[in-house]
């Protein structure tokens, strides 16, 4: 059984009298351990789709199963639990808490998981060293480079050992060199068995994934797997 099972997902945004159909019926499945790139032109609905399968937003119609669970039937608190334990999210704009240290930022998901203070610190430190930031733990985001900030965000996304790591254009705000380093990180994670879903505009980055889903005008145009 697939880790993610989405069928006929639609999403409408109403802007006054006008309705934007961001997704117009998307169906696909994702298995454990896959590394998937989502591509498509700007405004095609990539972020909308990722927010829905990452449980940050709800679809207008369609069903979505995560780990065999129908997400639309879950309560707010159950969804919070899933976001906390099953899902790690990396955003294009990092979304770190500004006046908090890197360590505090990484500890945040563990706080909501009810982990003891000592464990919070230990696990957050572990993840920070895994992304190569052990010497920057007490720095605030404003004292870190873009690549370092994104690595803090990745450490935060991974700290609670999620089933799936979502990344919405994680290299979009980085130069190609740092972008490359971040991609290297994703590769290593994938090798360790981490399921990764990644949005990108760059063919070069998409080429690194095993499977590419191409979206256009709110519909899947192609879904290709490398051997």
């Amino acid at each position: 059984m697939n880790l993610i099972e989405a069928s006929n997902i639609t999403k409408d945004y109403s802007l006054g009298t006008q309705t934007v159909e961001a997704l117009r019926g998307v169906t696909f499945g994702i298995e454990q351990g896959e590394f998937i790139a989502i591509m498509g032109p700007s405004g095609s609905g990539k972020s909308t789709l990722m927010n829905i399968i990452g449980c940050l937003d709800s679809p207008t119609t369609g069903t979505y199963h995560l780990n065999q669970q129908e997400v639309s039937t879950l309560s707010g608190d159950e969804l919070a639990g899933i976001r906390n334990k099953e899902i790690g999210f990396v955003f294009q704009t990092f979304h770190l808490l500004a006046r908090n240290s890197a360590l505090d930022n990484v500890m945040l998901p563990l706080k909501y998981a009810g982990v003891s203070k000592a464990d919070q610190v230990n696990r957050a430190k572990d993840k920070l060293s895994q992304v190569g930031l052990e010497s920057r733990m007490n720095h605030q985001p404003s004292e870190l480079s873009g690549g370092q900030q994104q690595r803090v965000a990745i450490a935060r996304a991974l700290v609670n050992n999620p089933s799936i790591l979502f990344a919405d254009e994680p290299t979009g705000n980085l130069d190609s060199q740092t972008g490359h380093e971040v991609m290297q990180l994703f590769h290593n994670l994938h090798k360790q068995g981490q399921t990764i879903i990644l949005i990108t505009h760059e063919n070069e980055i998409a080429a690194e994934a095993q499977r590419t889903i191409y979206i256009k005008d709110g519909l899947i145009e192609s879904d290709t797997r490398k051997e």
């Binding site: 608190d77 919070a80 639990g81 976001r83 906390n84 999210f89 979304h95 808490l97 945040l108 998981a113």
Partner: peptide, 12 residues
């Protein structure tokens, strides 16, 4: 939004 994305409940 961020706290909720990281798993904070409404109550928290």
């Amino acid at each position: 939004g961020l706290r909720k994305a990281l798993g904070a409940t409404h109550q928290a």
